[in-house]
Computed example of a mutant assay.
Amino acid sequence: MVTMDVLNEKMGKGTVSLGLPEKNAPWHLRCANRSPRYTTNWYELMKMYTD
C-alpha cells in the first residue's frame, strides 16, 4: 500500500489501483445474463420425481 501511495503521489492520482472492476464496466451486462450452471454443477441440477 505504501508503494501504491508513493507511485500515485509521484505519477498522479489513480495511476496504480487494486484489481477492482469499474462500476459501469461493459462485462457487467454479460454477467447478469449468464445462464445457470445446470450442466457444470451436480448440486444445481433440477430434481424430478415421479409417483
Rank of each mutant, 00 (worst) to 15 (best):
M1Q: 10
M1T: 09
V2W: 03
D5A: 09
D5N: 07
D5T: 08
V6T: 10
V6L: 06
V6M: 05
V6S: 05
V6D: 08
L7M: 11
L7H: 00
L7G: 01
N8P: 04
N8S: 02
N8G: 02
E9P: 00
K10P: 00
K10W: 04
K10F: 06
M11S: 01
M11Y: 13
G12E: 11
G12R: 04
G12K: 07
G14H: 01
T15L: 00
T15A: 05
T15C: 01
T15W: 00
T15D: 00
T15K: 02
T15Y: 00
T15S: 12
V16P: 05
S17A: 13
S17C: 06
L18T: 02
L18F: 06
L18E: 03
G19I: 01
G19N: 15
G19V: 01
G19F: 02
L20E: 09
L20S: 07
L20G: 00
P21I: 05
P21M: 03
P21K: 08
P21Y: 08
E22A: 14
E22H: 14
E22R: 10
K23G: 01
K23I: 09
K23V: 07
K23M: 05
N24Y: 10
A25E: 11
A25S: 12
A25N: 07
P26D: 08
P26M: 04
P26V: 02
P26W: 03
P26K: 07
W27E: 14
W27N: 15
W27Y: 11
W27T: 15
W27L: 07
W27R: 14
H28T: 05
H28Q: 10
H28N: 13
L29E: 15
L29P: 00
L29V: 14
L29W: 08
R30I: 09
R30C: 03
R30M: 11
R30S: 14
C31D: 09
A32M: 14
A32I: 09
N33M: 13
N33C: 06
R34Y: 01
R34Q: 10
R34W: 04
R34H: 06
P36T: 06
P36I: 06
P36C: 09
R37S: 15
R37K: 13
R37I: 06
Y38T: 08
T39R: 04
T39Y: 07
T40K: 05
N41C: 09
N41S: 06
N41K: 10
N41M: 10
W42M: 11
W42E: 14
W42P: 15
W42I: 15
Y43W: 07
Y43Q: 13
Y43G: 14
E44V: 04
E44W: 08
E44I: 02
M46W: 10
M46Y: 11
M46A: 15
M46I: 12
K47V: 11
K47S: 05
K47L: 07
K47A: 07
M48G: 10
M48F: 12
M48S: 04
Y49I: 11
T50V: 12
T50G: 11
T50P: 03
D51H: 13
D51F: 05
